[in-house]
Amino acid sequence: MIHAALSSSGAQVILAASSDENYPPENIIDGNTESFWISTGMFPQEFIVRFSEAVKMSLITIHSYNVKNLRIEKNTSSDATDFELITQKEFEHTDGHLQENDFQLSATTATHLRFIITSGYDHFVSVHSVTVQ
């Protein structure tokens, strides 16, 4: 499945709490749900997406596996500080296929999005894509 890749618009993943070089966090925003980032043990886990400029969004879509609780925070500053919570959710467990979750937002502007996975259905969780609209 191909989504508009955040990376092609200049977005970057600037921090991930854990990483396996074979499954780097860049895979989250390459527009391809086949490639993924996987956590390497223990919770919480987090990653931060930085946009090249302030972006307006009303929908965030996440493809993942075995994620249980996720919080999304944002900021509008040029560095990755002073985040505020915008939404959180407990995902349903899926077996044999990816989790797909939408977060409807009342029009929000952000320069960074911070994703914090506070628990999982397994020791290891994967995130395959994050897209915003």
């Binding site: 499954y23 749900t33 086949e34 490639s35 390497t40 043990g41 596996y65 990816l98 020791h123 290891f124």
Partner: peptide, 17 residues
């Protein structure tokens, strides 16, 4: 054992997408 579990999970996840 934990390492083996990790490798198993990667295999599983690779078959999903």
């Amino acid at each position: 054992a934990f390492y083996t579990l990790y490798q198993d999970r990667i295999q599983t996840i690779q078959t999903l997408a």
